[in-house]
Amino acid sequence: MTDRTSTLNRLALAALCSLVMAACTPDSEDDYCNHHYLYHADHQDQVGNFTANLDAGGQLLVTVELPGQPLASQLLENPGNVYQVSSETACSSAEVAIESIENGTRASYQSDCGSDNRVEQINVGLFDSLDSLEEVEVVITTPAAQKHFAISRQCDAAIFRLQDHRKAP
């Protein structure tokens, strides 16, 4: 092997090692957010639930359950405190139903967005309305897909692949 070849071999190996080292450097992201999906089941019953179901006819049904928040009913009476829909044409005003559940509150909202209307965005303002709310488990269903995840105040991204013991609705 010539000197030049062995130098190039060494350079290539050095580049490989530096890439591997770069790849193996621990990430600074919060461990809690990265690993919460594994432990979510441990406190699943204590967190809030948010479900939204948008069907092909444009009917939007949103349900919120807040265990441990018996006094939240007044706040939940105003759908604007819970969510706001942005769509090509405005959806109808939501019909609101509030009920008490064991040590908590359940609210449901039904509105008609129209079958030809495209819902572009749903802003969920629950966390801003309820300072004490730390986490919600979410199931959102559209005519095309369903997603199940958790949103925690500690994390800036949704937590997917929840290893829960309950089936998503």
């Binding site: 965005q121 749903i122 969920v124 959102i140 095309a144 897909a145 800036d156």
Partner: peptide, 23 residues
């Protein structure tokens, strides 16, 4: 073109989940 965003506002920060239709 089919994107629908669900944005969870948490003060200054927010978490966004995207939905698409592949029809």
């Amino acid at each position: 073109k089919t994107e629908m965003k669900v944005v969870f506002q948490m003060g200054e920060q927010s978490a966004t989940v995207f939905f698409y239709d592949y029809t």
